[in-house]
Design a binder for these strands. Structure first.
Lengths: 234, 234
DNA sequence: TGTACATCAGTGAACGCGCGTTCACTGATGTAC
DNA sequence: TGTACATCAGTGAACGCGCGTTCACTGATGTAC
């Protein structure tokens, strides 16, 4: 029992994992609103009050599942960004975007939970921030790599949108935060591409594009590639 | 009673309006999940079963409110598109986009209901489609007007994203559906702008951009203007 | 190694909540003659 | 204009559901001596 801890510790860890697993499955199958401690307990053959030995409250369980969801997406995007480091930045961008989309379709309720409308009465604690930004930071890394390896070209004289002074100050701060050394116009395009990517995934997942086209994945790929071009990724 | 109908008809219409009004307010204040026939009845001083004389079920009430929400947004966007017909298309586009954003912030729960994650266990019936597309069709109208009045210029040799043949067929159908005579590349940019617009509104409203910048409205305006430029609106 | 006590996991009952929906009913309004 | 019947609005009780959370408890596991 030296390395693995006492029987109690081992079984506690196992049961905690079981609760999260079942919670995750309920979330995946029926959505956040239908996630209840009682149903999780029922499935595990324990009495509902027993769950409180492992989880503080329903909100606590939900928070852990949110963090899990963000981490699951974050890991996948990071992995694809890592794996494609030898490719052209525009191809990496497309691959990463398709990964976000695929994850969303594989985990629709989890996507809805983290990128959809907030769960009523629930406020995500600041703890979730680190996990919540992983996917987006992985996308940023593609742009940073492209800049550093000079695989970046902006049209010579693209007309420039004039930025409000305060927004420009915001951009200065943002550039420092995400360590991305690009000019205002390009940064704006990156933010546009980022919101467009998630916007289209959400529209597809929430059926706003139903009847618009049949080839949803092709449309997504085309839009993503176009945005990579606009950013200036080779 | 000739023109206004019988006492019964008048009072029926009034009470139906009351139910929808209270429902709308509950939706606005507490969100779709918290909308219940019992609470609406309570507020109106009727017994819960009485509401069933006016509304078939909770889902029926929700559907009517969804249609109302779409219509409310649709009307506002249509109005601004009408009112700006003399201005440059890019300015109209910006004005319309800001209207969508303002409506979303004024009616966050309604926006979440129609553009956020679907309500669990609820499927919007096809009846909602007409109202659901009004805002988007108003945006399209700006592009159509620009095309017809030749206030449209695309960069001469913008590199073109190659479209998959089946997606191109989709685009042919779409062009006919929305009566918008523009080439594939431009249509793609319009779709991008459309998803970007709602994507950024959703991100803002659902707090995904918290900490990113302080000047959210300026960012939104800059992104929208940039997209108008990319589409080719003067 | 054995015993005495402390810690922890799990039980089962209970509280109080709010919901959607149905149903037999009373009494008011509307209509046909 | 007056009466007999039909239609409709609203009542109040009830059914059955599931939820989060608390609490005093029993019995097993862990620890200090």
């Amino acid at each position: 029992m030296a390395t693995n801890g006492t029987t109690r510790e081992v079984s506690r860890a196992q049961i905690t994992r079981d609760i999260l697993d079942v919670g995750r499955r309920h979330l995946a199958e029926h959505g956040a609103a239908a996630l209840s401690l009682r149903s999780v307990a029922r499935e595990l053959g324990m009495v509902s009050s027993a769950v409180y030995r492992y989880v503080e409250s329903r909100d606590d369980l939900l928070t852990r599942l949110i963090v899990d969801a963000y981490d699951s997406l974050g890991e996948q995007v990071e992995a694809v960004v890592d794996a494609t480091s030898a490719e052209l930045p525009s191809q990496r961008w497309l691959a990463a975007a398709l990964t976000v989309r695929a994850w969303a379709f594989a985990h629709p309720h989890e996507y809805a939970l983290v990128y959809g409308s907030p769960v009523p009465g629930y406020a995500a604690p600041p703890t979730t921030v680190t996990s919540g930004t992983r996917a987006s930071l992985a996308l940023i890394r593609i742009v940073r790599d492209a800049k550093q390896s000079k695989q970046f070209r902006r049209p010579r004289r693209s007309a420039v949108v004039e930025l409000d002074a305060r927004l420009s100050a915001d951009f200065d701060r943002l550039r420092a935060n995400i360590d991305l050394d690009i000019d205002d116009a390009t940064l704006l395009d990156v933010l546009i591409a980022w919101t467009q990517l998630f916007g289209l995934v959400s529209f597809e997942l929430f059926s706003q594009t139903r009847g618009l086209v049949d080839q949803h994945e092709e449309l997504f790929a085309a839009a993503t590639s176009r945005m990579a071009m606009i950013i200036g990724l080779r």
